[in-house]
Design a protein around this nucleic acid. Sequence first.
DNA 1: TGGATCGTTTGTGTAGGACAAACCATTAAT
DNA 2: ATTAATGGTTTGTCCTACACAAACGATCCA
Lengths: 159, 159
Amino acid sequence: MTSLPVVNQPPHRCGALLDHLSRRMRLRSESVLAPLGLRPRHLIALTVLRDLGGSSQQDLAKILEMDGTNVVGLLNDLEAENLIERRRSPVDRRRHVVELTDVGVKLLVRAEFALAAVEDEVLCGLTGEQRETLYELLHQATNKSEVEACTEAVTRPTC
Amino acid sequence: MTSLPVVNQPPHRCGALLDHLSRRMRLRSESVLAPLGLRPRHLIALTVLRDLGGSSQQDLAKILEMDGTNVVGLLNDLEAENLIERRRSPVDRRRHVVELTDVGVKLLVRAEFALAAVEDEVLCGLTGEQRETLYELLHQATNKSEVEACTEAVTRPTC
DNA sequence: TGGATCGTTTGTGTAGGACAAACCATTAAT
DNA sequence: ATTAATGGTTTGTCCTACACAAACGATCCA
């Protein structure tokens, strides 16, 4: 009733498609990531940390929607490889501020490069431009969600 | 070197984002789908079957990238609820042609409707138009992949 | 007739991840 | 100052998804 004369068809649900495509991607990614000593969920954590530029473990747990105890294990893996660094927060010494190390940044780049072939295979139905659009949409959606999850993040006043 | 004067920045990798967003969606979907007696992977199977309009179990296994034995269990669940139907293929009586029943179609619609709130929450960072674009991209990508997987599908000559 | 294929059943193993309990260090409230 | 609450960690238990193998019946094909 607003303005557009668009056909009022039922909105498409992309949950199942998202799941399906994600699964295809993840399955193939595992073999590519293995030589780097990474698993798909490590890559997610690294990616999120890079996008955030650091986070407390609690916030990270919220964003990843993982149980806190499992986040500990995940970060232990990454810290053992010197990919992340846990520093005590100066404002609240109970907190750990988790950040990517230089090694982590570099490995993340290498991993993403290695995944190029996988993406080419899974997203073969899309043009380069469409893939970029897809990336933008996914990025925008996840970022907004993260902001939602990060209600009252006193940790980082810039948030 | 083709034509476009686009800035030549490293292409963005959306594997991790895809995984991340998919996880968020799946976690929330579970509670919504539970009252309907469905799990996320059931919904994927139903969705794929609807998009395909029927398939042999083998092809379905390829598309879902699942082990054949696990597909059997998945279909057993769905058949027990009368959501799908297994018919013997007339051309090759070893094969089962799997198709949605009317009940299945209706339940799938109901499930998608129930998932509207979940999508609204997870995709709150996107406008309606952007969500539609996302759907189109995901649909296009999965369909192409399915065609790839379905090499020489003698089952359905129309393919 | 014999070998290959589709689907099915059963069983085994592994991994992800949820959850709970107990602990330490630290902060905040009284 | 004592107490309660919080962030992180460890340990241990449990469940589910899934891959994988083996064996079977039915069917197709050479």
